[in-house]
């Protein structure tokens, strides 16, 4: 494998550059995926049948906690990549670990939120609105869950193999994924929760 040292490690080989561009295109597909979920959400949001409306079940506190946790995690993984570019593997691993912990915290609050909704009579089967609510949040949550495993694998690989063009590439792509989840959350936060509560 030819390594181009004029570029950051994660861009070092031709395959790495292909991987990064390919992942951006995948993110394009993800935009379309979440766009469809939002389209369905806005269509079904007022179709609550006999179940509760969004304003009745949403609460600001847990949503705000989730937002802060995810925003911060997006910041820390950015720092992780920065550390990686400085060649500081240890700092990078620390930042990645903090990111995953914050992600875990986010997931915990989200699951707690789901339990509250269900207790308030908003189950998956209650109405068109609750179905699309759980599906939209659940798809994002499933992405976060997947990210937790993926991120953990990458930390393990960096510990075992050090910073190589391969591990750096994987870490960078993972950071793109994680930032993207934050972008999606911003839209959920604004157009599901804030719009639903105002």
């Amino acid at each position: 494998m030819k390594v181009d040292h004029s570029l950051p490690l994660e861009y070092g080989t031709e395959q790495n550059r292909l991987n990064i561009l390919g992942f951006w295109i995948f993110l394009g597909a993800e935009i379309a995926l979440f766009g469809t979920l939002f389209a369905s959400y806005f269509t079904l949001v007022d179709r609550t049948g006999s179940g509760p409306t969004g304003a009745e079940i949403f609460e600001i506190t847990p949503v705000l906690i989730e937002t802060i946790l995810l925003l911060t995690s997006s910041f820390t993984i950015g720092l992780g990549i920065h550390a990686m570019r400085l060649g500081k593997a240890k700092a990078m691993i620390t930042f990645f670990a903090i990111t995953l912990l914050l992600g875990l915290g986010f997931l915990g609050v989200e699951i707690y939120d789901f339990i509250v909704y269900i207790h308030e009579g908003a189950t998956l089967q209650t109405s068109g609105f609750t179905a699309i609510l759980f599906l939209t949040l659940g798809t994002h949550g499933a992405h976060v869950t997947f990210g937790l495993f993926w991120g953990a694998f990458i930390i393990l690989q960096v510990i075992k193999r050090g910073l190589t063009p391969e591990t750096a590439n994987k870490a960078f792509i993972f950071s793109l994924y994680w930032h993207f989840l934050d972008v999606v959350w911003i839209f959920i936060f604004s157009f599901v929760f804030l719009k639903g509560m105002m």
Partner: peptide, 28 residues
């Protein structure tokens, strides 16, 4: 991705009795 989401909703309607495309409980 649009098909992915639509199929997912259809699958959930059929397997988990959700109300995305039903004609009751706010489905459309």
């Amino acid at each position: 991705p649009v098909l992915t989401v639509a199929l997912l909703m259809g699958t959930m309607d059929r397997l988990f009795a959700t109300n995305f495309f039903t004609t009751s409980n706010g489905g459309m």
